[in-house]
Amino acid sequence: MSENVLEIHDVKKHFNVGNKQVVKSVDGISFSIKKGETLGIVGESGSGKSTIGRTIVGLYEATAGKVVFEGKEISQLDRKEKREFNRKMQMIFQDPHASLNPRMRVGEIIAEGIDAYGLAKGKAKQERVFQLLERVGLHPDHATRFPHEFSGGQRQRIGIARALAVQPSFIVADEPISALDVSIQAQVVNLLEDLQKEEDLTYLFIAHDLAMVKHISDRIGVMYLGKMMELAESQTLFQEPLHPYTNALLSAIPVSAPKLRGTRERIVLGGDPPSPINPPSGCPFRTRCPSTMERCAVVMPEWKEVKKDHWVACHLY
């Protein structure tokens, strides 16, 4: 088995929202990612899945816990190491409209990282930009154009080229396809898969579309209200989900063909997700859980490996 390229231990990220109130956006999460694999993270709005992504790349500073990248804890890095970490770990953003500076030409956007690290200059830089554009399925002529002249899918390709420019080894993709049209989503997903193979990349893929996450990920983690509920290999998670929340989530996915209507037994969750400002005691899911017990209100269940490579936080196991 190859080594863990990223490990996070009991990471918390809390935000002060005024009035002495704290949102526990991420509240004690641990997992690891092996080199070359894709870990998918799913969760509904407010689950903290984007926050964990931003904390890992270092855009947010963790309130507690450790993020260890290639054996080094990122909060302990010196200046030079920090720079190297920033280069190796890149991010692809959700909104293709907000993630590109509207006042810069595509060439400049892609060259930004090349400049920041002095990776190439003059003609070589130009060449590199052209090469990257072609790599993501665009034309070198596009370098002189502005982001608003491109469609959503093309812009997302530009965002990918920008990240690739600094030759990263790890990419956090924060809902990279959820703003795109169905026919375009597949283009971008295929591109990400090709790049992973060719450039030997490791992905953390955050999304709410379970089908896409299953398609692209080797393993999947399910988050709910700042906590990780279950983590397993994609196939296992879909076929033998353990956590009641995972079960409910999977049962809510629409069928893929009308003839399958009604074949999926739907577990309807009562009520709404609680507010992350004032989460329930114990297990955050207990207020909506069909199999809740007294113990659930008292203590948060331990995060444990129930079967090989199958982690879950639930008192049922």
Partner: peptide, 17 residues
């Protein structure tokens, strides 16, 4: 808060730039 500024930060672009 815009993603393109976050991206620039992540790419190691200096504050001045």
């Amino acid at each position: 808060q815009q993603e393109f500024v976050l991206a620039a930060e992540k790419l190691g672009t200096s504050h001045g730039k």
